[in-house]
Design a protein around this nucleic acid. Structure first.
Lengths: 202, 202
DNA sequence: CTACCAACTTAACGATGTTAATTATGATAA
DNA sequence: TTATCATAATTAACATCGTTAAGTTGGTAG
């Protein structure tokens, strides 16, 4: 029965090759160049072979989004772990969220800026145990700690969603309008975060 | 020589018909359904005829964006004119910006959420005298008034861009993730704006 | 050896934006 | 009135996209 297993391994291997190719294209050429045919060409199979391993393109994107969210989560966790107050941890986490989006614009776009029917975005972000869920929970938890400390009478979930919106705003706007005469990038990001968090102090 | 003028009028008329059809499709069926062929079908001409009146699809979108920005500008101006302090005017303006985006998601998406090569977005937004420029200038001016009053030592342009990012963030996130378990919409918007502007007070 | 089954490919469909070649229209000049 | 000729519009076509159906291959089991 080792043959069946070998087949299984081969099958899983090609599946991984497809995801690897998709990721490479996404990062090297951008999400606009990521097509079933470009993936097929890269793995040297016919385009339709991919459909034997994935239901459709959205399913491939779903996996790339999961990957992206995992990396973003890791970056945010790492950034937070260097800070020594709840407020600074939250601040560092948001900064890491933004930095990730700007460092990996194509990854950010496929996870937060495209409506991938039923498959990606919300479904992926919300699924119990998904990295998207972990990511949002991380921010919720850190915000909770800040609100505990400050004692501000605010609805935590509303504030959380507003913080997310503010952070997403600067990332998506910078990505969408790269030619706009923005002020110096780091200054802009710092200002964006400062203004976002000002209301939580005291 | 009246013939030449009549031709001119006919030409201009069909050009308007194309824009009208495009607008109708955008509003009735969404930006995903807006194609050269769907426009052609609506005006009962062949798809390629459109290219005799517009260089390409982007040029059509450019005009729809201009229209959208004009309406958004009007909504923001009107909202501001009801308020009696610089701060409240700025606040009402941002609220109108957000409300417009959520009321006209397809118009918002084509102007702020797609990168239309050289044609739309930034080019349109920046062009001297364009409505996009007027819109941004309106916010800059109102922010200026607020900063004058409060005397806060902040860089106006940085704060302006951050305010824009915050406002864009809530609009684009709500549009992109309609299925997320958001808190009640009005409450979320108010919280978003409150947190955004908190830093400007005192 | 043959029959089957899985893996894979080719062909094709219906979209998209866009270009080139072709036809129809309609005003003007002979 | 008819012939000419630019303009207006169309048809055909290309390259791209995601996706489905049908066909081909090759290895394994009976």
């Amino acid at each position: 029965m080792g043959i069946v297993e070998r087949k299984e391994r081969q099958k899983e291997s090609l599946r991984q090759d497809i995801l690897d190719a998709a990721r490479e294209i996404l990062l090297a050429e951008g999400h606009a160049k990521l097509s079933m045919r470009s993936i097929a060409k890269r793995i040297e199979y016919s385009p339709t072979t991919i459909y034997l391993y994935f239901k459709n393109k959205d399913e491939i994107l779903f996996h790339l989004c999961e990957e992206a969210l995992e990396r973003q989560f890791d970056a945010m966790s790492a950034a937070a772990s260097n800070e020594f107050s709840p407020f600074l941890r939250l601040r560092a986490t948001l900064r890491a969220y933004i930095d990730f989006g700007l460092a990996e614009p194509d990854r950010y776009q496929i996870t937060y800026m495209t409506d991938m029917s039923q498959y990606v975005s919300v479904t992926s972000v919300l699924m119990e145990g998904s990295f998207g869920n972990k990511l949002l929970e991380l921010v919720r938890r850190q915000l909770h700690d800040v609100l505990m400390e400050s004692g501000a009478p605010l609805d935590p979930e509303s504030v959380f969603q507003a913080l997310w919106a503010h952070s997403h705003g600067i990332v998506s706007l910078l990505i969408a309008c790269p030619d706009f005469p923005w002020v110096e990038r780091d200054k802009l990001i710092e200002t964006t975060i400062d203004m976002s968090l000002k209301g939580l102090l005291r």
